[in-house]
Nucleic acid binder design. Sequence first.
DNA 1: GCGTCGCATTAAGCAACGTTAAGTAGATTT
DNA 2: AAATCTACTTAACGTTGCTTAATGCGACGC
Lengths: 353, 353
Amino acid sequence: MNQALAEATARPPKVSAASVARACGVSPATVSYVMNGKPGVSPETRRHVIRVANELGFRPNGHAGQQEPQLNRVIGLILPNIVNQMYTGWAENIITATARDGFEVFVATTQDNPDTLAQVASTLAARNVDGVIIAAALREDSRALRTLRQRRIPYICLSRRSDHLPGDFVGIDDDTAATQLMQHVLDHGYREIATVIGPRFSTASLAREQAFVRTAAAAETTIAGERKISTRLNRDGGRVAAEKLLATAKPPRAIVCGSDEIAIGVMEHALSLGLRIPEDLAVVGSDGLPHSRSALVGLTTIVQPVQEMAEKAFDLLLKQITKPSNTFTHSLCEHRLHIGRTCGCPPADTTRR
Amino acid sequence: MNQALAEATARPPKVSAASVARACGVSPATVSYVMNGKPGVSPETRRHVIRVANELGFRPNGHAGQQEPQLNRVIGLILPNIVNQMYTGWAENIITATARDGFEVFVATTQDNPDTLAQVASTLAARNVDGVIIAAALREDSRALRTLRQRRIPYICLSRRSDHLPGDFVGIDDDTAATQLMQHVLDHGYREIATVIGPRFSTASLAREQAFVRTAAAAETTIAGERKISTRLNRDGGRVAAEKLLATAKPPRAIVCGSDEIAIGVMEHALSLGLRIPEDLAVVGSDGLPHSRSALVGLTTIVQPVQEMAEKAFDLLLKQITKPSNTFTHSLCEHRLHIGRTCGCPPADTTRR
DNA sequence: GCGTCGCATTAAGCAACGTTAAGTAGATTT
DNA sequence: AAATCTACTTAACGTTGCTTAATGCGACGC
């Protein structure tokens, strides 16, 4: 007990800039200049100071000055779930990006439940995170964002945003992407088309559905109400939607999905009914997950630049953390249409990667 | 107060905030600030005070002390990566399980780099997490575990463990599972067999490979050295391995993989060569990811009970946190052999879910 | 029921530290 | 030799982080 206490009580000795200064025979000011990359120090002295500082294990993060006041170097990441590879892809890249700057990440999931979202935001706020990246924002319910705003915790919306509260946003141009995707399906000549999207409380899902319908309408193809399905954002959601769509007397010839996971669920069900893809039913998605693009699946889909989006999001967040501002940035990243074979294009088009 | 009385009534002597303050060389005020989450205390001191307070068993409310001794209610989760769905599956379930008890989760990834692992463990320790679940343990390098042990932070190894350091462990019986899987492949009559596993610094990968080889040998089938490949634990690793295996003069008739992601990579490459699965090449995996079991892929594989493992791991961790003990539990969960069609079994066997 | 004591909380004070503007010595240029 | 520039020091400042001291509150003795 006593020994344990002694061990626990032993605190690593702190190294001050002054001690570094003394150790290499310069003034504290010089050390300060070196550590902050300010001019006015000869390269020779600079090198020497850096070397000694490293040897002594000097951490400029001591305590004082305008050194980022009280940064915990922790950010929160709120995702709808961590099963959909779209989200884990972002998570992976965000974790990598943050690690570069010495940040840790709290990952929280909401299952798209508004109350969970609100509660998670409070919890994160209570934990004094330096900022939050939210990929689970809801159109109507901005409680979470409001909480963060009140506590002056910067946040970035990723992919989805709130209808009411302004703020920084990183995403793709859902409208254009969805338009291109639907246009490609129309170009195949399909006219009996159904759409299956994620929950309409997601701005991304809604924007895609609207673009799907508008583009189809422009080609004089009406998508009836019972052929516009909103479902859960996973394989199972797709399966349920496909059950409804394919059980009707006149099933659609093509199903345009607002998510790859949904598309895969749809295809699974179609296959279990003995339908061939794309001969009997064309299916396209929109996320560009690695495994749906693979040769095994060959899904035609919109590819989102996951890494770029993740890095951009953290970048913006870091900017808000270090230099809070009231001007909000909307950053739209370039998407890409990936042609697989599930839309009916010849397999030759299936490029690797 | 009356020490004799306290002892006589067998009640533990109550620990005052002042004594905690003395024990870690700060003022009572500082302890108070820490216990109430008030600002004005450096993170370093805060962690230190919390650690000492926990060790002394300090209850914040002298009389109405119903609360646990100030836990951070944060655990760390160390994964090799967050792309492989095996890991995200565990992560999802661990996050859910911990949320029920009001715990938050730090997710860190190592990319299976020993230095990153060691560093991540230090960082988590510095953040004073209450415990850590590690699914990225390395056989040889137990620096990370040692760090945690020194700081008296409980940890649970998930799926992989260290060769050197004992500790709680949750996993499946890799040996039995791998034996069953290989036996199933042998039962199909295949004799030209290759194995592709994850990195050998993972105990799980190594155990599987050894069981594969042993089982094959028992059926008088030798697996040559160039047919035992260890590769990265993702689709790309599988692809690379398949390139090597299938380019030889006498390619194998069946490839037994130590991971679903690898199996999928192998299959992708095989398909791109125009091979039919399972007619030309049988492939089996071992993780039981939802999407490899789906009708689209139909992989024959070992199914790990993800949720059960996650909950068990957190359960054990919580036990270690609340009541540290020196006896270690090895908890083996029941796996299941899922028969798909990639091994050559008739499609009829493909059961849903 | 009132006063006192023990203990936790909170406000005010103060020392330590890193930053930066101003100052200075020496070297180089003009 | 005066001027200028470089490389550093000195000194003042704003923060932070912790302590000392004052406050508040409930328990217990009288």
